[in-house]
Simulated assay, not measured.
Amino acid sequence: MESESKQVMKQRKKQLEVLDILKEALTILVKNTNFIIFAFLTSLPLLFLMIHFETLFQQILVDTPRIVKHILLQFNTKLYGGFIYEHVIILTDDDATIHLDQDYYTVTSFSSKDYLPNLIQLVFMYLVPLHVLELGSAALTVYVSSKLKSEEGRLSLKQMFLESFDASTMKGTFITSLYLLSMSSGILLAAAWTVSNSYILYMTFGCYIVFALICFAALTKLLMVYLEWSAIWNMSIVISVMDGIHGAGALRVSFFLSSGNQKRGLYLMLVFFALGVCFRVPCIFLGCYKGGSGIFVQVGLFFLVNTLKWVSCMIYFSDCKERKLEKKIIDDVEVGKDLQSGS
């Protein structure tokens, strides 16, 4: 057993850092053109849906601040017979039309009748079709990329299609995803609640810097928790695909393998979150949701980032698993030494 421990120590590789994981994932993508084609073809339904989803999502993001301001203006008008604008209460008659800054405060020109139906449609798309299509794309990407990594060779496009579709694996992975969907939805609802209340506090008490600091701290903490848990949740999907462990069992294994690697998982997810923001924010400012080719470019970039993310999650899982196995062998050797010395 001691010789086995020495052999493990000799063969032990350095722990992969975030940049190492990203570099290895990029290498898999660049060296395997067939894999890119396979990922693109199997993601086509997802890409078409993402175009509609992103258009609707960006429109909701733009409309939400206006809706909140609209509600606050109406509330102040009914409560005080006027509303606060730059710390001055302006009185209005009951039948008077409110006209202020044409960009934000012209209530009569702003129509919100489509906001709620669009929001309901967006939530339904996220929970049902988008979730299922993202899961299928992720499972196929993880499986084929793991084959490419383990075999260290090329697979033909035909082999990828023939060997990747496994009904039992898809079913088990879907069960795991339902656990994750419920937990991630809870975090997203908490984030939406925090953002809404932060915005209302800012609109009401914007002159006080303490409220801005509290809101920023709350959102930052919530984001860090979400990203750290995202690494665990994504690893559980990889575990379902590669090891056939599903549901709560996959989550338990993922928590075990993630112990001691929380920061690494957090930073890895932070990279992809930052890339998503960098691609989405310019698109919102340029008004890509209004039409044109901008939204197609954004979705295409999202496809590349999403593929890279799942390949990186597969590599991250493999590295965490390898470290745990090495640690177990070394611990077993140490226990054996203690028993021998005790006897």
Rank of each mutant, 00 (worst) to 15 (best):
C207N: 10
A248W: 13
T194E: 11
V62H: 12
S185R: 02
K337G: 01
G244K: 08
D20W: 07
Q74V: 04
P117F: 02
S196R: 06
S196C: 06
S150R: 15
F48C: 14
Y202C: 07
Q74D: 11
V88R: 11
M242L: 11
M183A: 07
L127S: 11
N76H: 10
K6L: 15
L49T: 08
D101A: 09
V132M: 12
I37G: 06
L49I: 11
Y179D: 06
W229E: 01
G276W: 04
V195S: 11
I245V: 11
E86A: 06
D243N: 04
V8S: 04
L79R: 12
S258C: 08
L157K: 12
S318E: 12
V62E: 13
L47C: 09
N261L: 01
E326M: 02
I120K: 10
C313T: 15
L16D: 09
C278T: 10
K10L: 13
R12Y: 08
Q7K: 10
Y104M: 12
M269P: 05
K171M: 07
S150V: 14
S343K: 12
V195W: 10
T64A: 15
F165N: 09
S318Q: 14
L133E: 06
Y126H: 09
F48D: 02
K113A: 04
I187D: 01
Q102F: 06
S177K: 04
Y126Q: 13
G265C: 06
R264E: 07
I51F: 05
V18H: 03
E24L: 10
I67K: 10
S150H: 13
Y85L: 12
T64C: 10
I71S: 02
G206V: 01
E86D: 15
Y85K: 08
I51Q: 07
A139W: 08
I67Q: 09
F124D: 14
N32M: 08
L219T: 12
K158Y: 15
G292H: 08
Y104K: 14
W193T: 13
I237F: 07
Y316T: 03
S254V: 03
S185D: 00
G136E: 04
G342H: 11
A231V: 00
V195E: 09
E163R: 13
A96G: 00
L227G: 00
I329R: 05
H52T: 09
G342D: 12
Q15S: 15
G276I: 04
W229C: 01
Q102C: 00
K14W: 01
S254K: 02
A96P: 01
V311N: 08
D63Q: 15
I329K: 07
N261R: 03
V238N: 01
V62Y: 13
L223A: 06
L189T: 05
Y85R: 08
T220P: 03
F38V: 07
E54L: 08
V225Q: 08
G260W: 03
N197S: 10
F296G: 02
L72C: 03
L47W: 07
H246M: 03
V297K: 00
A274S: 12
L257I: 05
N76T: 13
T141V: 07
I89S: 00
V253T: 14
S3K: 10
A167F: 13
H52L: 11
I237W: 06
F83N: 01
I214S: 05
D114R: 02
F110V: 00
I84N: 00
L251C: 02
I237Y: 04
K337C: 04
E228S: 13
Y267N: 05
P117E: 10
L219C: 14
T97S: 05
